[in-house]
């Protein structure tokens, strides 16, 4: 997993609420057995017409947003299906940070496993970032300082310290958990005694 420290980009704005993971990546792209190459399906029905031609007015097809690494979007982003293909597709497109008022739990978790930083901020601040996106102004995300810098405005955001540590160092959860192997084994021994049917 790629470490996340600082990120500067003109954000792309997708000001819709309740964007679900079926919208982020529709089912026909879930047949893959790989994690990569999924950007082809990102926001497919919004991005491409029925013949598969790009819709030139969709934000990610307009300059300078084709190179955005930050997505500014609406409430309850990533609701619905648990598919990790959603963050994979975003990452494959180049998105490393999402800013929205709120997220669905599973999507939120999935982001961290892939080096994507999902930031929750209040609607008023989001509106300013959306304006910045539309005016093609750069913003900077500083994970260490937990700050978003947008022109003269600086917003702070919260993040779980463990997740921050993992993101900043690009750490893989499984490796960390396996350091607790002996605890897992002793849990299993007690469990086998107390609850033999399990």
């Amino acid at each position: 997993m790629q470490a996340f420290v600082k990120l500067t980009s003109i954000p792309a704005a997708l000001p819709l609420i309740n964007i679900d993971t079926d919208m982020i990546i529709p089912k026909q792209f879930l047949r893959t057995i790989k994690r990569t190459g999924l950007s082809a399906g990102l926001f497919y029905e919004m991005r491409f017409d029925e013949q598969g031609n790009p819709k030139s007015d969709f934000v990610l097809h307009r300059e300078p947003y084709t190179k955005s690494t930050i997505l500014v979007t609406g409430d309850n982003f990533g609701c619905g299906s648990s598919r990790e293909h959603a963050p994979w597709a975003l990452l494959d497109f180049g998105i490393r940070c999402i800013i929205a008022p709120s997220y669905s739990d599973i999507f939120f978790n999935n982001c961290f496993k892939n080096g994507i930083l999902p930031i929750s901020i209040p609607q008023a601040q989001l509106d300013e970032l959306t304006a910045a996106a539309e005016e093609k102004r750069e913003i900077t995300i500083d994970l260490e300082q937990q700050k978003i810098v947008c022109g003269n405005s600086v917003y702070t955001f919260d993040i779980d310290p463990f997740r921050k540590h993992c993101l900043m160092n690009g750490l893989d959860d499984i490796g960390l958990t396996l350091e607790k192997e002996s605890l897992i084994t002793s849990y299993e021994q007690t469990r086998a005694q107390d609850k033999p049917w399990l």
């Binding site: 648990s82 599973i106 958990t177 396996l178």
Partner: peptide
């Protein structure tokens, strides 16, 4: 429900964070 990274985590460790 969990994502695929967590599926891998459970397969490997039988636990979740």
């Amino acid at each position: 429900g969990i994502g695929t990274s967590e599926v891998e985590h459970v397969l490997a460790t039988q636990t979740l964070i």
